[in-house]
C-alpha cells in the first residue's frame, strides 16, 4: 500500500517540482534583464524626445506630461498616447511647441500589417498634425481636422483617436 501512495502522488510532486524550478529560473532571468530592459526603453524614449526637440538639454516629467527645456528656456511639452490598432498597440509621442499648437507627432512602435497599416508612418498622414491646434485633432466626422488614410482606416483612426483621448486627459493639467 505504501509504495502505491508514493507512486500515485509522484506525478503531482513531479509536476509541482518542475513548476517551482521553472518559476525560479524565470525570476532569475527576469531580475537579470529587468534593468537592461528599463534602460533600453528609457534610451529609446530619450532618442524620440531628442528627435522631436533637437535642441533639448533636459526635461521634467510630472503627471504624465513632459516639460522640455533648453537649459532654462521651456521649449514645449510632450506626452505619449497609445491605442490598439489592427493587430497590436500603436504607441505615439506628441510634441507641443506651446499649450495648443502641435510641433510634431512620432510613432514610437506599431505592429500594423506591413504595406497597409504601416502607411501611418508616411509623410502625408503623420505630417498633417504639425502646426495643428491640439484640440482640433479629431476625426473629420467629429468636427476635427485630421483625416484618415483610405485603405488603412483602422490604423489611422486608431492614431487620431489615441492622440485626441491622450490630449484631453494629459493636457487638462496645464490648461485646466
Amino acid at each position: 500500500m505504501r509504495f502505491s501512495i508514493i507512486k500515485r502522488f509522484y506525478a503531482i510532486a513531479f509536476l509541482t517540482l518542475v513548476v517551482i524550478i521553472s518559476a525560479s529560473l524565470l525570476s532569475l532571468t527576469y531580475s537579470l534583464t529587468a534593468e537592461q530592459i528599463k534602460l533600453r526603453q528609457h534610451e529609446q524614449f530619450l532618442g524620440y524626445l531628442g528627435e522631436m526637440f533637437p535642441e533639448m538639454t533636459g526635461f521634467e516629467y510630472n503627471d504624465e506630461l513632459y516639460y522640455v527645456y533648453d537649459d532654462a528656456l521651456l521649449l514645449g511639452y510632450a506626452f505619449t498616447a497609445s491605442k490598439a490598432g489592427y493587430s497590436g498597440d500603436i504607441n505615439i509621442m506628441v510634441g507641443l511647441s506651446d499649450k495648443e499648437t502641435v510641433k510634431g507627432v512620432l510613432i514610437i512602435s506599431q505592429t500594423e500589417t506591413p504595406g497597409i497599416g504601416t502607411r501611418i508612418l508616411d509623410e502625408p498622414f503623420i505630417g498633417q498634425f504639425a502646426g495643428m491646434n491640439v484640440n482640433d485633432i479629431r476625426l473629420r466626422s467629429e468636427g476635427g481636422q485630421a483625416d484618415t488614410i483610405t485603405g488603412a482606416t483602422v490604423s489611422s483612426k486608431a492614431v487620431i483617436e489615441a492622440i485626441s483621448q491622450a490630449a484631453k486627459e494629459k493636457l487638462a493639467g496645464i490648461n485646466g
Binding site: L15, V18, S22, L25, L26, T29, T33, Q36, I37, R40
Partner: peptide, 21 residues
C-alpha cells in the same frame, strides 16, 4: 503539462533576452 511548462520556460527566457538585448 510538464513538457509544456519546460517549453514555456525556455520561450519566456528567450523573449526576455531578446527584449533586453
Amino acid at each position: 503539462p510538464v513538457f509544456i511548462v519546460i517549453i514555456a520556460t525556455f520561450v519566456t527566457m528567450v523573449s526576455l533576452t531578446f527584449e533586453a538585448y
